[in-house]
């Protein structure tokens, strides 16, 4: 009898299975790292965030960018709905000590603190230990090579 095991029933609605024999083997072959690049607070400068977003895209990640002036609630909602593996927070207004911990608190409340959170922007060295204590994994200041950010995310997201 032909066994119709349901796990091998996975099909694309289009596209020939023959042209993509990989699908016949390990089906879990297309996993992509999804990253939310978010701008909390009121500053209107997102060139840095856009440069990072673009670099992550060029490294093969799917980057969701939600624009300026996001509240922590909006950021956490987007992160959950989009099922991201990593959140990159960028801030230049100086409000990081208020907004970053708020994001972490909401993630915890939503049981989503398995998401890797990194930060960037203008953040004084002295603030970094405090931020890390709230669960922010790493802070990337100005001048950080893009490769370091990419490598950090690739090696630290949950798998």
């Amino acid at each position: 009898m032909v066994t119709l095991a349901i796990e091998s029933l996975y099909i694309s609605t289009r596209g020939s299975p023959v042209s993509n024999p990989k699908r016949g083997g390990s089906l879990n072959s297309t996993k992509k790292i999804r990253v939310l690049v978010a701008k909390p607070g009121l500053d209107g400068h997102d060139r840095g965030a856009k440069v990072v977003a673009r670099a992550l895209r060029d490294a093969g990640m799917e980057v969701i960018y939600t624009g300026l002036r996001q509240t922590p609630e909006m950021i956490v909602r987007a992160a959950i709905d989009e099922s991201v593996d990593c959140i990159g927070l960028s801030i230049l207004s100086g409000a990081h000590m208020a907004l970053f911990p708020k994001v972490m608190e909401l993630l915890k409340k939503e049981d989503a603190d398995d998401i890797l959170v990194v930060g960037g922007g203008i953040i004084p060295e002295d603030d970094v230990p405090g931020l890390k204590k709230t669960g922010i994994a790493e802070i990337f200041g100005p001048g950080t090579p893009l490769e370091s950010i990419i490598e950090y995310i690739q090696s630290h997201v949950r798998t």
């Binding site: 990640m61 799917e62 980057v63 939600t66 624009g67 909006m74």
Partner: peptide
């Protein structure tokens, strides 16, 4: 790269 910049949410705030 196979990556993507998904920006449609910007207008859906």
């Amino acid at each position: 790269s196979g990556g993507a910049l998904l920006g449609d949410r910007i207008r859906m705030q």
